[in-house]
Amino acid sequence: MINKQYASVAEAVADIPDGATVMVGGFGASGSPIELLHALIDHGATDLTVINNNTGNGEVGLAALIGNGQVSKMICSFPRSSQSKVFPELYRAGKVALEIVPQGTLAERIRAAGAGVPAFYTPTTVGTVLAEGKEVREFNGRPYVMESWLKADFALIKCEVADSLGNLTYNKTARNFSPLMCMAATTTVVQTKTLVDRGGIDPEHVVTPGIFVNRVVEVTQPIHEDVLIAEGRSYP
């Protein structure tokens, strides 16, 4: 019988190799899979390309992964915030590369990868520097820019409730990119606050169907990035 449960976050990320492309769910602090990120820091894989809307805050979670020298490239829409210090320093020092992608294009590129659509045309970036070098084509007299799908080897996701088949629900705006990333990664690793038996989630309420999920780890008391930052914590 299928059971996607893993015993620990350490086991769930143990085979992420150097050079992997890793999607990380979350928008700012909401939905950030802190325990999986810290497990990836312990695991130590390097030369990672990380896809996230931002670049982490403070010195925990994604910011700590970057600060630990494990990330060679970030793909994101908004790499700075009032509480992001690690990425700006390393970026200015030339130690981490940046691909900037508009937020909606980032979401759609990830969705397209999961949906098996290699490219699409969008009005976003028409007439701007971010469209330079890209194919532009007119539909009904209006120009659109071609963008390509964005895949990953692994996705690290935080959810609220999961069942043993990997069906997921999320909490409020912590959902953000996570359902898309689950679809777009070869191996999707999920930390869930509550793990239930199959049948424990009403099929009408499933947000991410389990076919998009490979591993589920129960983390019953997930630490919120905002709390760690308020406490002035750092990792490791």
Partner: peptide, 9 residues
């Protein structure tokens, strides 16, 4: 450091 977010969309 360029940061576009959802503005262009």
């Amino acid at each position: 450091i360029p940061a576009v977010g959802g503005a262009m969309d």
